[in-house]
Simulated scan of single mutants.
Amino acid sequence: MKRGPRNSVIFEPHHDAVIRVAYAPENYGTNRGVSHAAKVLSLSLDTVHNRAVALGICVPGYKENPNWTDAENALLIDNAHKPLQTIRCALIAAGHRTTSVAAIQRQLRQLQISQRQERTDAGIYNPETLAPLLGLSASRIRQLIQTGKIKAIRDKQSGEHRITARQCKEFIVHYRQSLVAHKLDMYWLVDVLTGAIK
């Protein structure tokens, strides 16, 4: 490997070929991947990644193609409450391309922002709609209603429980120890606690 001014690396066509092969989707996560290319070229992973960016193989800030399919996004949304490594394994097991944990975290953040913008809450929930927001099951919500921890109004026509945003806020403030932080919809939680949803 030749060095130029300021000890910068001078890449030759065969070096670029090694990097192109390493970033090919079929080689990601294999013994012919990016780590292998860095080892073969005696370079750091960052240097290899920066060259891949310069070649237009990937986008800055991403170790791989940042385009997410609808199926991958659906899997992320369904597993958003799980640890990032578990989500990564679920993506691999479902046959999706392997992604870095950092890319998964960025995409989850983006999806949660989109979901918040799409939400048109009236501020009234039933156990089924409240469950994913609090990170609990619908049956657990019903138990909390029966024990009086969550105050609810029974709809006379349907017989279903209705919970207002104010009642949700009271429950969260008084019984926050019974909630698991990483399972909550944080954007909804902020909106409820600040009064944006009434």
Rank of each mutant, 00 (worst) to 15 (best):
F171E: 05
G95K: 03
H49F: 03
S137P: 06
A74T: 09
A80V: 10
I153M: 08
A122I: 14
I57M: 10
Q157N: 15
E128H: 09
L43E: 08
C58E: 05
S137Y: 10
D46F: 10
Q112F: 08
P83V: 01
K151N: 14
Q157D: 14
I57K: 01
C89H: 15
R154T: 15
N73Q: 15
Y175V: 02
I113F: 08
G95R: 00
H96L: 10
Q85H: 11
T120G: 13
D78S: 14
R116Y: 07
A80Q: 14
D155I: 10
T120S: 13
Q157E: 14
T147Y: 13
L111C: 08
L134V: 00
A131L: 03
I150N: 05
N79W: 00
N73M: 11
T47I: 06
P132N: 02
T99H: 15
S139V: 13
G123H: 04
T129P: 01
T99Q: 15
T120Q: 14
I172R: 12
R176P: 04
G159H: 09
Y125M: 00
G148Y: 05
T129F: 03
A71K: 09
K169V: 10
D46Y: 04
A103C: 07
I145N: 00
Q177H: 12
Q117P: 04
K169M: 08
N50C: 08
R176F: 13
A52I: 00
Q105H: 13
A102L: 13
K151T: 15
N65M: 03
I153E: 15
P60L: 05
L76C: 01
H174N: 15
A102T: 11
A131P: 05
N67Q: 10
R109S: 13
L91Q: 09
D78K: 12
L76I: 01
V101W: 03
I113C: 10
R97F: 13
F171V: 02
V180E: 14
S158Q: 04
L108V: 00
L184C: 06
R154N: 05
A138F: 05
T47H: 04
K82N: 12
